[in-house]
Simulated assay, not measured.
Amino acid sequence: MRAVAGPLGTLLLVAVVVYAALCLLMFLMQRSLLYYPTPPSAAPQARLQANGIELRFAERPRAGPRALLYFGGNAEDPSHSLPELAAAFPDDAIYALHYRGYAGSPGTPSEAALHADAQALFDALQRRHAQITLIGRSLGSGLALRLAAERPVERVVLVTPYDSISAIAARHYPWLPVRWLLQDRYEAWRDAPRVKAPTLLLLASDDTLIPRQHGEALSRHFAPGIATVRVLAGTDHDSIGADPAYWRALQSRGE
């Protein structure tokens, strides 16, 4: 019996050590797994000194009260989205934040840093525009939602949003204690109850990266009458923007 227990005990110890080492590795690498910075962009970039760095953003300036502030998805250069947004909103000023480390923007991305940058850019734009609509896609949906909970905004659109990054990570890595390991949790559900502006959640029916169930779960945390959910059939995380219904929904302004 002792001879059996000895090898089994050794195997169990080795398994525990390997698992602990894997958890440590994932903890140390987590931001490189969460953020996918894009290469430097050749597109023109506006600049704003804030939070100790030179924030960069794409813009299509327009005089007047209305503006749209866009927070893109992971691995997205937001300047590429600017022409389509400008065509969809010809009378609005358009701005799109370049996250730290993305498209040549300085710094290193983290949840706290990106939230602070989003606030700084909004505060600067609010001095020019009284009516600001927020659009957040994927990773950017959490930034838009936190900003809407903390600042007066006209309208919010969340494209393929999540209830929390920790919930998404737990789905993709069920064998890891991700809720203990994660530093950047992006718990959007905590911000939803504080949002007072009309909010549209656009979900892709066949999304495997952020399954629609996470967006539906998020919608249940809003105050009554604030959030509207729309599922675009036959779309996934990447193709949702190619559906004509997507652009009609963005332009509807809740009407």
Rank of each mutant, 00 (worst) to 15 (best):
R212E: 15
D191Y: 13
V156C: 07
T199S: 15
W175C: 03
T160H: 09
W189T: 00
T199F: 13
K196L: 14
A130I: 00
A124I: 01
A144N: 06
I168N: 01
L209S: 10
A204T: 04
S141Y: 06
Q213M: 13
T208M: 13
A217Q: 12
R194F: 14
A148C: 06
L203T: 00
L176W: 03
W180Q: 14
Q126V: 00
L125G: 10
A192T: 08
S138C: 07
T208C: 08
A204F: 07
G140H: 08
I132E: 11
A130Q: 13
V159L: 10
A148F: 05
Y173P: 01
H172M: 09
L181N: 01
A192G: 11
I168P: 00
D184R: 00
V178D: 01
Y162R: 02
A217F: 05
W180F: 14
E216P: 11
V157A: 11
R190S: 10
A144Q: 05
T160Q: 09
D191V: 00
R155I: 06
V156H: 04
R137W: 12
T133A: 15
T160W: 10
W175Y: 15
G140A: 09
L218F: 10
R127M: 09
Y162M: 10
R146E: 14
A204I: 05
R185I: 00
V159R: 03
V153M: 04
S166Y: 02
Q131A: 13
R179Q: 15
Y173A: 04
R171D: 14
A148E: 07
A124H: 15
W175L: 15
G215M: 05
L145W: 05
L134C: 09
L121N: 08
L201C: 06
E154G: 02
P161F: 08
W189Q: 13
L200A: 12
D191E: 11
W189A: 13
L125H: 12
S205C: 01
L200P: 12
L218R: 03
V195C: 04
E154Q: 15
R179A: 14
Q126T: 03
I168A: 02
W180L: 15
G142E: 03
L134N: 06
Y162W: 07
A167Q: 12
D123Y: 03
T199E: 13
G140M: 09
L143N: 03
R190E: 12
G215P: 04
A169P: 02
L218W: 08
Q131Y: 02
T133Q: 15
Q213D: 13
R185D: 01
L218C: 09
Y186W: 15
R171I: 00
G215A: 06
L202G: 02
D206F: 10
W189S: 11
D163G: 08
Y186I: 07
Y173R: 01
W180P: 08
A148L: 07
L134M: 08
G215F: 03
V159C: 04
Y186D: 01
P211A: 11
A197T: 07
L158H: 03
